[in-house]
Amino acid sequence: MKSAVITFPGSNCDRDMDVALKKFGFKNKMVWHADAELPKSDLVVLPGGFSYGDYLRCGSMASKSKIMQSVINFANSGGMVMGVCNGFQILVETGLVPGVLLRNKYLEFICKNIFVKINDKQNKYFKNINIEVLKFHIAHNEGNYFCTNDQLKEIEDNNQIAINYCDENGKIEDQFNPNGSIKNIAGIFNKEKNVLGMMPHPERMIDISLSGEDGSLFFKNLINNLK
């Protein structure tokens, strides 16, 4: 399985993502934002970081970069595109997934482990995963998911919510919502579910001695689903 990680000026989780993808069997290539062509890939990842210093709105500049037209075409033709953290912010700015990510409700940068409950397994990201609640890491200032009421209705009707913030038992409540996101949304799909944007970093949970291994479960499952 081949993957590609796009590096934007200011990306800082691109190499972590590279390590994670390779660890679980992907042949990964790093792609510079100013390139026009994507290498042949089964998965394209927009990594976390602070592309363009978060100028204007997080992800807004990166969403207009040269490589993104190829990424958008790839996604629109059914290609698997995953955006993590700043990558999620870039995805919403391209319009590939609905909504926006606002400043966290309590105006603080949040950096901690959280739990998310998988809402939908009818997709290549979570199909067959043998777990309901994942322990992931978040580190963001703008992760407060927001969309219009009409968009929310459409998202719910199409079952596009991927993961929700919850407690370790999978209980989705206000008190387990770290950033004020509507409906505790931590990750969301496009309508066809080949594009996934999420705030948590699975690539930070791939080593039991460092952090945890729920990211390992995620990546192992993902590569099996793509085979």
């Binding site: 207009k64 700015e93 926006v100 606002l102 927001f146 968009q151």
Partner: peptide
């Protein structure tokens, strides 16, 4: 429309 504003918000 294309860059300066995000019309969702």
């Amino acid at each position: 429309k294309k860059l300066l504003a995000n019309l969702v918000i």
